[in-house]
Design a protein around this nucleic acid. Structure first.
Lengths: 140, 140
DNA sequence: CGACATACTAACGAATAGTTAGTACGCACA
DNA sequence: TGTGCGTACTAACTATTCGTTAGTATGTCG
């Protein structure tokens, strides 16, 4: 997965690399955002915030990931410099994943959001409930 | 869009609604996470953190959204209670979107992450560069 | 001698994202 | 008076991505 963003005409790429601009369509930071905030990306970062884990342990911890998606997610995060991948050359294979310092920072920010969502679930569920009720009223 | 999560056997739904658990496959908080961290969800929250905006102004501000995706994203966020939608009954249509207090909280957390990514872009781009170099070496 | 475990990849069908075209209606310009 | 523009959408279609299943190597256990 090499780094070949579509360049916006007139804006030098180096400008984006000095500091990203997510609102700009051509900015490579959108790729990183995608990796970090992807469904499985978030959960992997959360899982590894606690401890170093092997592939299959991660798979058990993160409920519902397929092997393909987990492998892909791990590769993306490794490419962006968020993960360390240490593989021991034995059979059966043994590979350990852990966060790099950059990954720890990312996981921290994502963690704040994830925690907030978990804590705010009751409020959000309440909104869902109210909406259902008013929809029901409209039908009568 | 009604609220019908797949229930994990043995775990009462009310447990998830007391506080979400993102690692649990059946937890409805995953839906919320998806809406908030979706590509366009993030950018819409960022854009509305600054000011109330109309549909087409949002579209111009968030580079590269299609109308369909913007409409869908706005509906999701509105359903979760993050957005206020105020529509004036005139022609041509005039609809204003703004953040609810809940939405402001979400936008704040997402904003910290987004800012961090923008600021960290140089570091990440550097990792990309190094990886490209070592890949090139392997080919020789 | 199977069966199982691990960390993957290839191939395929299913779901999701994105694109394009259309709608109602009023206004400006020619 | 008619041609075109602007707004906030939705429907229909296509491209892309996701997810599921099956395969691989090889050592240990029953």
């Amino acid at each position: 997965m090499s780094y070949t963003p579509t360049k916006a005409p007139g804006i030098p790429l180096s400008d984006y690399l000095r500091r990203g601009d997510l609102m700009a369509q051509a900015c490579p930071s959108r790729e990183v955002l995608k990796h970090v905030t992807s469904k499985w990306g978030v959960l992997v970062l959360m899982a590894l915030r606690i401890e170093t884990l092997r592939f299959s342990a991660l798979r058990r911890k993160v409920g519902g990931v397929s092997e393909r998606m987990l492998a892909q997610t791990l590769q993306n995060l490794e490419n962006d410099g968020f993960l360390n991948r240490v593989s021991y050359d034995v059979v059966p294979p043994h590979v350990e994943y852990s966060l790099t310092p950059l990954g720890q920072e990312a996981a921290e920010k994502v963690g704040v959001l994830a925690d907030w969502i978990e804590v705010s679930m009751p409020k959000i569920a309440q909104v869902w409930g109210e909406r259902e009720q008013s929809e029901a009223l409209l039908k009568v």
